[in-house]
Design a protein around this nucleic acid. Structure first.
Lengths: 194, 194
DNA sequence: TCCTTAATTGAATACACATTCAAGAATAAT
DNA sequence: ATTATTCTTGAATGTGTATTCAATTAAGGA
């Protein structure tokens, strides 16, 4: 017996970044061997093929984002403050200039959703689960009486998701905090308004 | 002398649709010859290369959208009603299932903005000009006293643009009028609120 | 220590792709 | 009709691609 020599998470994060910057189609196996340090054969041995590595990278991305999200809301602050911090963090990503400024899930869905049913299902499922996590946050806000009891958490979560998608897209053309911050502020205000 | 035999607009719209469905990278010259009915040599004669055809298609897209926009607002209805109709039209596109459900500009910017400076500039410029057209609509709404005089048209336009980006992205995962209509309604309500 | 099993290596393979080009066809001016 | 000009045709070209595979290397059990 012999174990794999590489660190799976490190390899997946390297692949993840490459896919986020170039997109799936424009990322060549050569790009991936350079980014991961693995030889073609090793990639095919561990992940079957380019698409297998892509899916594994997407799953790692989802895992990382879920952990990050949970950590941000794992405190006893006001839920509204946490939401504000969450938006601030997203804005920072949009403005950072590095790979995280794009969301791998929406980018992949936009690129491949039309042609690849499997990618479409995986990304949609992960985006739905993100939506549900946000809905839970609004449920908490209701329990804290920060928003009206008659509020529809599912709807508010959907609206926030829409706003975040929009913010990220605006950031593509206007990566400017002076533009994005007021948008984020109004978005949050419109969400918690009576 | 001899004139080109093909109808330029028809060719550009065919190419446009192909690019919208597949994206630039995944559209092969073979796809384009099939969609346009032109042979490779004719395409290279008329548009230099694949990217030249792509840029021409983007320009045609922008022209078509601008015409459509102007037509929708060229009446003496309440500006708010026109905005409502505009959002309804966008929703219809999102739900139509055909190529128009994606915006060629944002899709291209997301796919190629990172690698191709020229595409980035063209798409950004066209998206900015769209933003300005919407800002003019809010100026009209101010003149009609439908929104407060102190409103910032630029900001409201940016917020609507953000919302439309978001709506289109939500439609990728939830192409459902029951989901999208309430989002569009709240978006409009939040825009014209005192 | 030897042997089985599995991972690693990187050159070789087969294929798809954008692009070219020389020959042919159509047009308009002379 | 002739000629010059330009467009059209589609097979050929060369490059970049994902993938394979036989040889090699390492690890753990007997």
């Amino acid at each position: 017996m012999r174990h794999a020599e590489f660190d799976r998470e490190r390899v997946l994060r390297a692949a993840m970044c490459t896919f986020m910057v170039n997109g799936y189609t424009k990322t060549s196996m050569q790009d991936l061997t350079k980014a991961t340090g693995l030889h073609p054969g090793s990639i095919y041995c561990a992940f079957d093929n380019k698409k297998g590595l892509f899916i594994a990278a997407i799953e790692q991305y989802q895992q990382d984002r879920t952990d990050q999200f949970k950590q941000l809301f794992a405190n006893d602050h006001s839920t509204v403050d946490n939401l504000s911090d969450y938006l601030a963090q997203i804005l920072q990503e949009c403005l950072s200039g590095d790979a995280t400024k794009a969301c791998l899930l929406t980018k992949s869905l936009s690129e491949m959703g039309e042609q690849d049913e499997q990618i479409k299902q995986i990304t949609c499922q992960f985006l739905q689960s993100w939506h549900q996590s946000i809905a839970q946050v609004f449920d908490t806000a209701k329990a804290q009486q920060l928003i009206p009891q008659k509020s529809d958490s599912q709807f508010l979560a959907q609206y926030l998701v829409m706003g975040i998608y929009g913010l990220r897209t605006v950031a593509n053309t206007q990566p400017d905090v002076e533009v994005l911050q007021p948008l984020a502020d109004k978005l949050l205000a419109d969400l918690i308004r009576q």
